[in-house]
Simulated scan of single mutants.
Amino acid sequence: MGIDDLKNKAEEALGSEKVESVSDTVLDKAADAAKKVTGGKFDSQVDAARDAADGKLGNA
């Protein structure tokens, strides 16, 4: 098994549906906590940051 094979397997694992589901749950909870702490004053910024992070993780 070469480096390219390992890289492909790692990319597949990071893009899996399970990882996507877990990352979405974590990001949602973090966003909800941030919204609560800020009293809802920065909801749109929190949502934008959550969506940007989600775009870097998983597959969707």
Rank of each mutant, 00 (worst) to 15 (best):
R50T: 02
V46W: 01
S44R: 04
E12C: 08
N8D: 10
L14D: 05
D5I: 03
K9Y: 15
E17K: 15
D5T: 04
S23A: 10
K9M: 13
K56F: 07
S21C: 14
S21D: 13
K9L: 13
T38V: 04
D5M: 05
S23L: 08
D47K: 01
M1P: 13
M1L: 12
D24Q: 15
L27S: 04
A33I: 13
V22L: 07
A10C: 08
T38A: 08
N8E: 09
T25F: 14
V37A: 12
E20T: 05
D24S: 15
A48Y: 06
D32N: 06
D47M: 01
A31E: 02
G55Y: 00
K36N: 07
E11D: 12
A34S: 04
G15A: 05
D4L: 10
V46S: 02
A31M: 02
G40V: 00
K41D: 07
E17N: 15
K29I: 07
E11H: 13
V19A: 11
G40P: 00
D43P: 02
V26I: 05
N8S: 14
K36Q: 05
E11I: 15
K29M: 10
D43W: 01
V22T: 10
A34Y: 01
K56C: 08
A49H: 03
T25D: 13
R50P: 04
A60K: 13
V26Y: 06
L57P: 04
T25H: 15
D47H: 00
A33R: 14
L14T: 08
S44W: 01
D54E: 14
A52C: 04
G2N: 04
G2L: 02
M1S: 12
I3W: 14
G15H: 05
K41V: 04
G55I: 00
F42R: 10
D54R: 12
A10M: 10
V19Q: 14
R50C: 03
M1R: 15
E11W: 11
K56H: 10
K35E: 01
F42A: 08
Q45E: 05
N59M: 08
G15T: 03
V22S: 09
G39W: 01
G15Q: 05
L14E: 06
V37W: 08
Q45Y: 07
A13V: 06
A52R: 07
E12T: 08
T38H: 12
A48Q: 04
G40C: 00
E12A: 11
E12W: 09
V26H: 06
E20F: 05
G55S: 00
A10V: 06
D5A: 07
T25V: 12
S23T: 08
